[in-house]
Amino acid sequence: MFYRPEDGHGLPHNPFNAIVTPRPIGWISTRGRDGSDNLAPYSFFNAVAYVPPQVMFASTSAKPDRDGTKDSVANIRETGVFCVNIVEYAMRDAMNQTSGPWPRETDEFGVAGLEKLDCETIACSRVAGTPAALECKLTQILQLPGETNFVVFGEVTGVHMRDDCLVDGQLDVTRFQPLTRLGYRDYARITDVFSLARPGEK
């Protein structure tokens, strides 16, 4: 089939998310100006640069109590920092709990029964026990076409890695099985890894 998005697809559910898969999940923790913590997963997330290291995530909907966006973007606008917690398969249920449409005053760490740890380079909490976490300082927020589409870019100022995930000096993803987002209600975990050398590499 072929369809133009502006005309609709005629299917029971939008296939776009199922086409662009798998997508890493950025479990974004933020703190508001009032000191309240927030935690929410975003599957429009990725690394975008090496030097300096930078990441992005996109928020594409809004809450009635957040003036055209969601808690994460609102908090980052106020404080200029956020932390990306990497989601492993073992934390799938906790991650899912934090995806709910909770009121702005809700602390999702508590909702999901998660322990908090302080970040080292920014004033923000991170999820204890995650395979890795990236402390970030905001560089820019871009508004994309559409009323609630915002992309947040941040420079990584601190990196946490769980010791048991390091093997021979490398982060071994099979040790924690990263959770990835597919379409609809579907997810996947990474269990099999293979290597390819680029042309010209030794």
Rank of each mutant, 00 (worst) to 15 (best):
R126F: 05
G35D: 01
V167Y: 02
P178Q: 02
C136K: 03
V167W: 03
V159H: 04
R31D: 00
K116Y: 03
K202W: 08
H13N: 12
P15H: 10
Q170T: 10
G158R: 12
T174A: 01
C119E: 02
G169Q: 03
R181G: 03
A47F: 13
V173W: 00
L182N: 11
V167F: 05
P15D: 08
E135R: 11
P145E: 10
F2Q: 10
F153Y: 15
R181F: 02
F45H: 07
S125M: 10
D67P: 01
A197R: 09
V152H: 07
M56Q: 12
D164S: 15
A74Y: 14
F109E: 07
N85W: 00
L114F: 07
D186E: 12
E135H: 12
R189H: 09
A112I: 12
G183E: 12
E155M: 07
H160K: 07
G183W: 10
T121E: 15
V55T: 03
F45M: 08
S72Q: 04
V55E: 07
D163Y: 07
K137S: 13
L114Q: 10
F150P: 10
A47Q: 13
R92D: 03
G8N: 06
N38D: 00
E201C: 10
P52C: 06
T139M: 14
C136L: 05
Y187M: 12
L117T: 13
E155A: 13
F45N: 05
